[in-house]
Design a protein around this nucleic acid. Sequence first.
DNA 1: CTGTTAGCGCTTTCAA
DNA 2: TTGAAAGCGCTAACAG
Lengths: 336, 336
Amino acid sequence: MARRVTISDVAKLAGVSHQTVSRVINNKAEVSPETREKVLAIIERTGYRPSGLARGLATSRTATIGMVVPDISNPFFSDLAKGIENTAHDRGYSVFLCNTNENPQRELDALYSLEQKQVDGVILGGLRQQGPELLKALEHFSAVVLVNRIIENHPFPAVMNNDRRGAKEAVQHLIQLGRARIGMLLGPDFSYSGVCRQLGYADALSQARLSFEESWQVHCPPTVPGGADAATQLLAQHPRLDALFCYNDLVAVGAIQACKALGRRVPDDVAIIGFDDIYLASLVTPSLSTCRIPRSEMGEQAISLLLKQIDGEQLPAPVISMTPELILRESAPAID
Amino acid sequence: MARRVTISDVAKLAGVSHQTVSRVINNKAEVSPETREKVLAIIERTGYRPSGLARGLATSRTATIGMVVPDISNPFFSDLAKGIENTAHDRGYSVFLCNTNENPQRELDALYSLEQKQVDGVILGGLRQQGPELLKALEHFSAVVLVNRIIENHPFPAVMNNDRRGAKEAVQHLIQLGRARIGMLLGPDFSYSGVCRQLGYADALSQARLSFEESWQVHCPPTVPGGADAATQLLAQHPRLDALFCYNDLVAVGAIQACKALGRRVPDDVAIIGFDDIYLASLVTPSLSTCRIPRSEMGEQAISLLLKQIDGEQLPAPVISMTPELILRESAPAID
DNA sequence: CTGTTAGCGCTTTCAA
DNA sequence: TTGAAAGCGCTAACAG
């Protein structure tokens, strides 16, 4: 790899000052057509590409954003990431991917490192971090968008899914199916959306005047094995549960596996509803009823909000709320 | 957001030169313990974090790498990405995610933009680009690792899966199951691994002296709908096909769907084998036989190779080859 | 329309 | 052990 071609190299070859080259690459008006031509020809010939570092240092804008997610291999976040990256690319931005493995400390690490990289903004998906360090870390960014998470008393722009409402509708459907002993697999301890979904679950039960117990709810990692283990344990302790509402689809698929292993039929013995509507949901057997979240669209909304902040525009709404849609499949069928 | 704290701010507060601060943050030896203490205290107090841009400009190292993938929502690539990001994080590197949507032009765009960002190296997963522009673009990077792709006559370090061998074994298994009319869903036109898998398919058939025809093979997008459409079309034209070997698991799941829709039983009427062993494979019904690729491990190997190049170390082997493992499930069961 | 100068925040080199 | 000076490659501000 040869030495980088710099703006001065181009200037020298074109017989102009480096400032003129700068004007050309930044499409400033005040350059004569002939000069512009000449410079562009040299740029073309030499394959010159301006240094993002130098530009960033001079302008304190890097055309770079950070995206922090708990698990990129979770389809929810990879779809979100795809929406974000596509829109970012269209708008000339590059995206740092930070995968935190569900580890709150690594969320902070990610933010520190993004600060060093001087990104123009960050999008935080499914934050687990709770502590005051989070707010401290976020202060160093001029643009922040949260996805599926709100921080109390701190009005960060956010793209939210109406988890509570979606969860309530899902559980109401289970009730309509005649289930009266509905457990819940809660997902990770510190998931904000987990809390919202739990609230929706409680809403539906209390509105229907159904009893429910603390012990019918159990936390678990948001993965298939996490759901399988938790469901196995829950069904062992409470064999009479006749439905499970699950934090997300991965957990729900785990629950289906657990039921199969325990010889409980789905949905006859245990009806199951998940959350997200990842691709997998329609492909498992029995196919999974779930609340659909428009993930790519959320990603696109998130980056739009972020770029508006970066460009100093007024935000139309600080919080954009998406409405989930109940998708009924075999694991908790429609009532006909 | 307040103005960034700079090295000079710290220096002033500590009553030393900025150079001394630089020595402290870079852990250079020649600083007296007291000075170091004093400086570290100020850094702690002010929340100073060195500018990556300025550092990069001064050292021409950015502690940043680029990762280019055709589709981050494809589980193969999101697992790969996870392996890469985790190892990169451990080693102090940040990762740019470039999603190209299976579009060769966007691969070039990604490389141009990564060059501007002055990444220390790039990992290219599942390249679709064929043209000479690719080589031209790659010349600008001092470290490059390919995943599942080789460029003829250009010995870039690579992490390969032995696709040809895996495909051959898969098709041999179909033959052992008594299938004699085996079609193939080839995946995208320009996929290198697609070509390798096709070769393995041909190897197995010719070794068994089975006939096969061009028209039994059809290209398709590497997705579930892509596979479903292609399988539907193929089975319409060649209703007597009794097995399908598929470019990847997503395509294979599409093929299973197509068979269901057409009323063809899997595996009785049509046996199906995929490739990758994504999580989904074990969860669909019938569960999918496939060739397992160790994806996260490939990601880790890829970044190790890359960091070795960046650090100027000798590479133990320029091409690391992983061995796929045939996983037999219901769609093409084991013979007992 | 074009060039000159200064400076972004850091590291490297050299001198003290 | 510490500091001063120069420079990384670019843009901003000014002058011509």
